[in-house]
Design a protein around this nucleic acid. Structure first.
Lengths: 98, 98
DNA sequence: ACAATACTTCGAAACATATCGAACTGTAAA
DNA sequence: TTTACAGTTCGATATGTTTCGAAGTATTGT
């Protein structure tokens, strides 16, 4: 991967709120393994004390960095982690680690 | 690790120039394994087309996030990667990966 | 059709960041 | 002891980011 894409991923995870959002989605994905690893945003917004517009904005940033994949489910928005992206980022950092 | 520290690390690596700086230092560290894994800043500044004040600023940010350790060597500044930090970050991301 | 829910878009305010040039500090070398 | 070099600090500017409230869209339930 080029460093351009890596820095894009890093930027998406550099904001505290956005990182927490991402980690929450990852957590919900694990909990709902049987039902397709989906996380309904409406189920987690309550634990963040920021407005809906801001959540929406952050989700778009995460999606834009290919860190999550979102999909409408009727009235709701479902999100799931894109493992490929975090794996690639991880692979690069691992090179430095050793 | 708390997500606060992780986001701090991510933020430090979220800027393209700063990430490249970090990767360069990592690369030089490997190349100079025998001589204590040090990277002299004066040896790499040439490959970045930004001014010295900006380099100085970015190095401070990297050091502040504990990603690198800097030390004066007479007239020069030597930098080396702090492996512990990147290892910890990596460990957290690995949890999501699987 | 109407109301309610879930989320998005827009515009603006507040704040943070990247970068620069000029001036400064510390070190080494002539 | 001057000069040159490597890097830092300062102040300014331009740009980007986070967040909000208000208004908009889409979908579901009454």
């Amino acid at each position: 991967m080029e460093s351009a894409k890596l820095s894009k991923i890093m930027k998406a995870l550099s904001n505290q709120t956005r990182l927490d959002l991402y980690l929450q989605i990852a957590k919900q994905n694990e909990a709902n393994f049987e039902t397709g690893c989906e996380c309904f945003i409406s189920d987690i917004v309550g634990s963040f004390n920021i407005g809906a517009p801001t959540i929406s904005h952050h989700l778009k940033e995460l999606a834009n960095a290919d860190l999550i994949i979102t999909e409408r489910r009727g009235k709701f928005l479902a999100a799931r982690i894109n493992r490929e992206t975090i794996q690639t980022a991880n692979a690069i950092l691992s090179l430095i680690e050793n």
